[in-house]
Design a protein around this nucleic acid. Sequence first.
DNA 1: CGCTAGCTTGACATTCTTCAACCGGAGTGG
DNA 2: CCACTCCGGTTGAAGAATGTCAAGCTAGCG
Lengths: 248, 248
Amino acid sequence: MAQRQLAFPQVECADCPIRHRAVCARCETDELEQLEAIKYYRNYEAGQTIVWAGDKMDFVASVVHGVAALTQTMEDGRRQMVGLLLPSDFLGRPNRDRAAYDVTATTDLQLCCFRRTPFQDLLANTPHVSQRLLEMTLDELDAAREWMLLLGRKTAREKIASFLSIIARRDATLQQRPTAGEVAFDLPLTREAMADYLGLTLETVSRQMSSLKKDGVIRLEGKRHIVIPDFDLLMDETGDDADGGVLA
Amino acid sequence: MAQRQLAFPQVECADCPIRHRAVCARCETDELEQLEAIKYYRNYEAGQTIVWAGDKMDFVASVVHGVAALTQTMEDGRRQMVGLLLPSDFLGRPNRDRAAYDVTATTDLQLCCFRRTPFQDLLANTPHVSQRLLEMTLDELDAAREWMLLLGRKTAREKIASFLSIIARRDATLQQRPTAGEVAFDLPLTREAMADYLGLTLETVSRQMSSLKKDGVIRLEGKRHIVIPDFDLLMDETGDDADGGVLA
DNA sequence: CGCTAGCTTGACATTCTTCAACCGGAGTGG
DNA sequence: CCACTCCGGTTGAAGAATGTCAAGCTAGCG
């Protein structure tokens, strides 16, 4: 396969699109300089594996552009996605040098990597980084618990609707647009990856997508571009209560 | 109902059974004194609700004795447990004063509570508390991801076996006994609560328990006391690979 | 022009849920 | 002391949701 050239630029922290949402969000100028000193960019193509579970990982990273997935695989091949990292999300665990999950790029991806050891030193010394990391980890835990409700109790149709609403929302905040009325976005996942996210088979995903299309809840323009004519209509299908199931 | 008297004693930190596993694990004597100053004990009976989702929560806490469950409920009554807190686990989220989930005591329970505001100050000032909290939160996230694999991809039988092995293991480490050969413990959950944990109905839980009993994987002495004649046999039923699916 | 990867659709099999009956022990009131 | 009831648990029969297996479609690419 010819190495396609990825177009993500390498920027100064000051011009970084995730400057105010990632681990570095709270950093003062001097802390930022320390981070800048140990950072480097890596790009991946859609479909590439970043690390396998059990592999040594000598860096941690922020997702700058694109989407990465954490996946667990059972011996017999059953797979469950357990993390979906969008821009500003953090990859890797401090004080653990081996990956616990397979990590793959589900779209073209740019990571802002920090060498592990200096990053850990930074964590120990600059409170703004570790405070922000704690906050982000707590947010991820909340998201994981929402996801557990989806996996354990929602129907296939509710799972799909919930997934679409999650992507729509995160995409909208990133683009600084509202999630109301008509909303449109590209799916960052194949049907198979969606199935791994939702604990379904890809056939069930496909059928439920067709069903939502038939009922006018979504429109499909190509296989990956989704148009939601009325976001409230989609929300009605998620099984969540009106406020989106977000912390009361 | 006559108020039964709970027998959990209130001890000094130095004599605390979870001294070296809870948020306070890394604290030096002076930090411990600060914690001691803002702590107080609360006891709950099995079945009691500690807070409802959305309620104001003016404390955070460590579980000292017993078991607490975090549960999410959908409008139509479907319920999914999203957290199971055993001794040394942490309850509550710093910088959020409302509970995100229903919290109930599934057994008689003792909490070591810290008043929210002083605890948050402590977090900001004593690195040993916030470092430990980050570590515990990362562990919980790992546990949640293991749980997601269970919810999304395991069969009912595998779910039950996995649950039993989790409880057996945590019980064993608490009692400082090995998990090998014959292992015995009490279930801290009703069949219904197990169903909420596993994303099943209570009938399916009951049937699979009977099936594991019939096949000699477990023995039941009463409804709640479980004897596992051969722990490896149980592990074979969990669907995890030999090393227990723990981080490779 | 034909191949392949990603996706859709159909027919059938399986797992789990639903609804219902029943069991047994603990607590309660007559 | 006994009957009653309630709660947690078990078991059965029937049905629904989802998975499995298989065929076929379409867009993009060599």
